[in-house]
């Protein structure tokens, strides 16, 4: 919950609601982009960028090196599986 997980924005799904599709470890999920939209030129410019996702909200744009390093830590902490399971199990 607190560590979040890195994912890559692959599409903008609802520009009015500031929602995008983020790929996290092969799982694609709608993620809120409100917190990273400010300060970027356009929502579309966020496509292909890496973000740190906390409970369904992209909180920070990060570079790929940071994303890989964070994924490595999370994998070793056993948190990647937990996050992915939560993403899939979470009722919607």
């Amino acid at each position: 919950m607190c560590l979040g997980i890195p994912g890559k924005i692959v599409a903008i799904s609802d520009s009015e609601q500031l929602l995008g599709i983020v790929d996290v470890g092969g799982i694609q999920r709608a993620v809120d982009l409100s917190c990273v939209a400010q300060g970027s030129e356009s929502l579309e410019s966020l496509i292909d960028r890496w973000v740190l996702v906390h409970v369904g909200f992209a909180m920070s744009v990060i570079d790929e090196a940071e994303a890989q390093a964070t994924l490595a830590v999370l994998t070793e902490l056993g948190q990647v599986q937990e996050e992915l399971a939560a993403m899939q199990e979470g009722e919607s």
């Binding site: 809120d32 369904g56 993403m87 979470g90 009722e91 919607s92």
Partner: peptide
């Protein structure tokens, strides 16, 4: 159990 608070709105 939800992954995101936004899921709550769907429910």
């Amino acid at each position: 159990m939800v992954y995101s608070p936004l899921d709550t709105l769907k429910i």
